Structure formats: C-alpha cells, structure tokens
Computed example of a mutant assay.
Amino acid sequence: MVKHRYPSKQELQRLAAMSITQLQQEAAAGNSAAAVMLGKRIALERNFVEGQVILREQMLSGNMFAFYAISESFREAQDRNLVEGAAYLRLAYILGDRKAADEIAKMRLSSAEISAADTRALQLYPGFAEDQVPDPRPR
C-alpha cells in the first residue's frame, strides 16, 4: 500500500477535511496523497483541466491512488463521463491493482460502456506505463 502511495483511512479522512490551501501546503511539502486530493478538489471545485494536470503528474510518478482520484473526478464532474472514469480504473488494473476491477463492477456499466472503457484504457496505457511494470497491489 505504501509503495503505491495509498493513504491510510485516517490519512484520507485528515486530508478530506483540509481546505485547498492546506492541501497545497501539504503537497508542496511532498505529501503525494495530499497532491492527489488537491488535484481532485481543484478538478471538481475550480477548474477541471487544472485538476487533471495535477492528477496526471501524480499518475506519471507511479502514484496508483491518483488513478482512483482521476476516475472519481470524471464520474463526479458536472459533465460526468463514466466511460472515461472506468478507463482509468481499468488502467490501474492493468498496472497491477486488482481491486480496481471491483470498483468498475460497482459502477454497473453496460457491456458497451465496459468495452469502450477497455478500449480507452489501452489507448491511455502507453502514456502512463512507459517504465512501469505491473506490480500487484498487496492483498
């Protein structure tokens, strides 16, 4: 969990209670979970594209937690995009996070939506997995 930068439940609760300014300070101090939370909050509350940039930077650095946050940002945005959200979870799965498949199942997508998400995940894969070798999430 630590290797893939997933925060503990307590850390997640602590970060969720912070303001954007506090998250910026934590992220600047090197807290990658805070950077992910910051990206998601900015995407949903201020500027979707700006938040996505932060989340993509975290994903490119190997932060698997960021794949969940970017998925949530697509699913919770004003202009929801469930297929794109599922694609980022599928990408997390391809990179070794077996629990991401469970999250996709919870979305209750149609077979056409799942197919579209899988196709999109394969399009995204080269951009996020250059040097990453799938590394299973601990059970």
Rank of each mutant, 00 (worst) to 15 (best):
G62L: 01
R5Y: 12
A117E: 08
A92P: 03
S32V: 07
F67A: 02
Q78M: 10
F67E: 01
Q123N: 14
M18D: 01
E50V: 05
A100S: 09
Q52F: 00
E72V: 06
N63S: 02
A69M: 08
S71P: 04
M59K: 02
R14F: 10
L124R: 07
R56V: 15
D135W: 15
A35C: 00
K9P: 14
M64A: 09
A27P: 07
K99V: 11
A27C: 00
R46L: 08
H4N: 10
V36F: 00
T119K: 13
E130K: 14
S73I: 01
K99L: 13
Q22H: 04
Q123S: 11
Q58R: 08
L95S: 08
L89K: 00
Q25Y: 07
S111C: 08
L122V: 10
G51K: 01
A66H: 07
G127I: 05
F48C: 06
R46Y: 09
A34W: 00
E130Q: 13
Q78L: 13
R90G: 09
A112T: 11
L12H: 12
N63V: 08
Q24V: 01
M37R: 07
L109S: 01
L15R: 00
R98A: 15
Y93L: 14
E57Q: 09
F65A: 04
I20W: 05
Q52T: 08
Q52I: 06
A105R: 15
I114N: 11
G30D: 02
K99H: 15
D131Q: 15
A33I: 00
Q78V: 14
Y68F: 13
M18Q: 09
M107A: 13
Q52G: 14
Q132L: 15
Q13T: 09
I42F: 00
P7H: 03
Q132Y: 11
Q10I: 12
P136V: 10
R5A: 14
A29R: 11
A66K: 03
